[in-house]
Amino acid sequence: MTAPIETTKSAAEVQPEAVLTGAKQSQIEGRSLGRIAWTRFKRDKAAVAGGIVVILLVLLAILAKPIQAVFGLDPNALNQDLVDPQLLAPKGAWGGMSWDHPLGVEPGLGRDLLARIIEGSWVSLLVAAGATLLSVAIGTLLGVIAGYYGGWVDAVVSRLMDTFLAFPLLLFAISISAALQDGAFGLSGLPLRIGVLIFVIGFFNWPYMGRIVRAQTMSLRRREFVDASRSLGARGPFILFRELLPNLVAPILVYSTLLIPTNILFEAGLSFLGVGIAPPQASWGGMLTTAVDLYEVDLHYMFVPGMAIFITVLAFNLLGDGLRDALDPRSK
């Protein structure tokens, strides 16, 4: 007599996982690299908070003009009746804060600080984003070419990076911005100043991105997928833009988020020195310039634009740190 067949296990337990009829799809579904990175990013509460603040700041910059139109905020409107004519300080406590002026008013002229902060947000973010995009474009292109081809190409690009890094960037930016203030390239006024700032900050900062991309490319060019592409007859441009660049997205994205706050501070510094955004156009650096002259009258006026820059830079840094940890497969 043959031994009886054991039937204690259910049909779902004895079948292969691929043909399970009662298993849920989420139990056997694989996760993509993007989904894994998103899951790891969500665990970092500080990075999530920084990302939320960054999104709100971007929306504020994009919708600055509509917000001003809807709520009737004029960054250049004078409210001298709210300022003491002798002391030049705003009437009332905390810089003249009220329901009509939640952040107070500017000493001397009485301009609404909330309206000027909103107006300055799109200027600072536009300059920082444009300069970052220019730096990333130039640095990524030259860095990946130098890292992949090596030899004399790498030597030429590396010496070019060293040359740009040897420039005294701040003095160079001050001289160029001051020389082009009146008009150039058919532009004048605010568009010219924004364009000059984007060019000066972005064009002379690309070696930092170029060095990072070059080092990553030198590591990736020895990987198996590059050798496989070569064996199939792929040429240099195809390998650069179809094989290497997709694998460089993570470090480029992380460094870009860290470069934006640096450019915001650079723009604020140039505006603070008087060669950036010219008044009466509101900018966070320009507001700090005026605040330094009036800090004995009203210290509150220095606090408002200073906190705007501080929160923006902190949010971008937290977001960049979170992205770095989420996209790095070697991190815990």
Rank of each mutant, 00 (worst) to 15 (best):
I174C: 11
I174Y: 14
G183C: 04
V226M: 01
S219W: 00
I174H: 14
G183Q: 04
L220Y: 09
G233F: 04
G233A: 11
F172W: 12
A215V: 10
S219P: 01
A178H: 13
S175Q: 13
S231Q: 05
P191Y: 08
S231T: 13
I201W: 10
T217L: 09
P191N: 08
D227Q: 01
Q216R: 12
G186L: 15
G233V: 04
R222Q: 13
I239C: 03
A234F: 05
F204M: 14
I212H: 12
S177G: 09
R223I: 00
I174S: 11
A179I: 12
P207Q: 08
F203V: 15
F241H: 11
A228N: 01
G186M: 14
A173Q: 14
L232N: 04
A179S: 15
L232Q: 04
S177D: 07
Q216C: 11
G202P: 07
P191W: 08
E224N: 03
N205T: 15
Y208W: 14
A234H: 07
F241A: 13
V226R: 02
G189E: 03
A228G: 01
S231W: 00
G233L: 05
L190I: 14
R193I: 09
L240E: 07
L232R: 04
G186Y: 15
R235G: 03
A184M: 13
T217V: 02
W206H: 15
V200A: 12
R214W: 05
R214F: 03
A173V: 12
A184L: 15
G236T: 11
G236K: 03
L197K: 07
L190A: 05
F238A: 11
R235Q: 02
I176W: 06
D227M: 01
R235T: 02
L197I: 10
R235Y: 01
G210Q: 13
Q181H: 14
F172C: 05
S231L: 09
A178C: 13
I174N: 08
W206D: 10
G189F: 06
A215P: 04
P237Y: 04
R222P: 00
